[in-house]
């Protein structure tokens, strides 16, 4: 049986177009292979700082942009060549929740509109009554009281409520995969816990696989099972979330985790020797992407490092670990527990 979703050596390069020439510009995602199984739903975190290619990955997965090379397969078919009924199924089964709960609502419509459009579009209900029941059910599933929400305008709702409505909208369609692109970064810290709880219950109760895209490793640690750390489009480290967060190996992951402001007085900032610095946007030289910021850089790093295994459930792309066994990037999914 084909995998539910498969990234096969996907690369996305954004080109710089001049008047007469087209030059390759930024490689936003570099040779990523990934498999998502249908029978085991999971929550997978894709982490990285701004410009690491997290959102490009989401856009590719949703079919908004096409890969420069490689293929993205949904149930064994390339998502960019899907037609007719198959395309509708893909559109229904792969849903998204975006970062800004304030920007996705049309201020002129009731919340009902946002929820009823997908029902009509995918013909999920045969009568008005059934449509209403579906809306009630979805809103209840995300912990909202439907009678408080329906008939209201977006400006009458808080950010946390709106974000949960977005999750409810996605849930209406019974998706198999939910892409959550920074769903809690614009929500009050005290409401974050509620939204994360809703997401993890979706996985448990409805068997939805969630691709959780974030730069916030604290929430990633709490919600997900496995993690992929990206830096400028390349996988730096991947594996089981507990292992990666508690014992990060790659210098970049160590920097990321050391920079988390833990709400813990005994765990202070700045324990690694890597200075917190922003990514430089300069041209990359074909070597390790982290080369210019890495304190451990050697001559070897001028060629891109492969993934080295740390254990069965952790691998890092760094020559510091070159005595360990290698693993091909195509087998990345084997590192990720479900």
């Amino acid at each position: 049986m084909p995998e539910l979703l498969e990234f096969r050596n996907v690369t996305k390069t954004f080109f710089r177009r001049g008047w007469f020439t087209t030059q390759p510009g930024t490689t936003a995602l570099n040779n990523l292979s990934l498999k998502v199984n249908e029978s085991n739903s999971t929550i997978l975190t894709v982490a990285g700082e701004s410009g690491s290619g997290k959102t490009t990955l989401a856009m590719l997965l949703l079919g908004f942009i096409t890969p420069t090379s490689g293929q993205i397969l949904y149930r064994g078919k390339d998502i960019n060549s899907l037609k007719g009924a198959e395309r509708m199924i893909f559109r229904r089964e792969v849903q998204a929740v975006f970062q800004d709960p304030f920007a996705v609502f049309n201020p002129f419509y009731h919340v009902d509109h946002l929820l009823s459009v997908p029902i009509k579009r995918f013909k999920l209900a045969h009568s008005k009554k059934e449509m209403r029941e579906k809306m009630f059910e979805a809103l209840s599933a995300v912990g909202l009281h439907p009678q408080d929400i329906l008939g209201r305008f977006p400006h009458q709702l808080s950010g946390g409520q709106r974000q949960r409505i977005n999750v409810a909208r996605a849930l209406l369609l019974r998706p198999k995969i939910l892409v959550a692109d920074e769903p809690v970064s614009m929500v009050d810290a005290s409401l974050r816990a509620n939204i994360l709880e809703v997401l993890s219950s979706l996985k448990k109760d409805y068997g939805v696989t969630i691709i959780y895209i974030t730069h916030d490793l604290t929430t990633a640690y709490h919600i997900s099972k496995s993690i992929i750390v990206l830096y400028r489009g390349t996988v730096m480290e991947a594996g089981d979330v507990d292992t990666v967060i508690n014992a990060p190996q790659h210098p970049y992951t160590r920097l990321l985790i050391d920079s988390i402001p833990w709400p813990d007085l005994n765990r202070r900032w700045g324990e690694t020797e890597i200075k917190a610095e922003e990514a430089e946007l300069g041209e990359n030289n074909g070597g390790c992407k982290f080369l210019s910021r890495c304190p451990f850089a050697t001559k070897k790093c001028k060629t891109p490092p492969p993934l080295y295994l740390m254990s069965d459930l952790q691998a890092a792309s760094c020559y510091l670990f070159d005595q360990n066994a290698q693993i091909e990037s195509e087998r990345l999914s084997e590192l990720l527990p479900v």
């Binding site: 409401l191 816990a193 509620n194 640690y221 709490h222 507990d242 709400p263 813990d264």
Partner: peptide, 19 residues
Amino acid sequence: QALISSLPSLDNKGVFQGI
């Protein structure tokens, strides 16, 4: 108290305690 206990930390994985 509620604010502090709603914080994610390394010890209470998977526990979500919103207000």
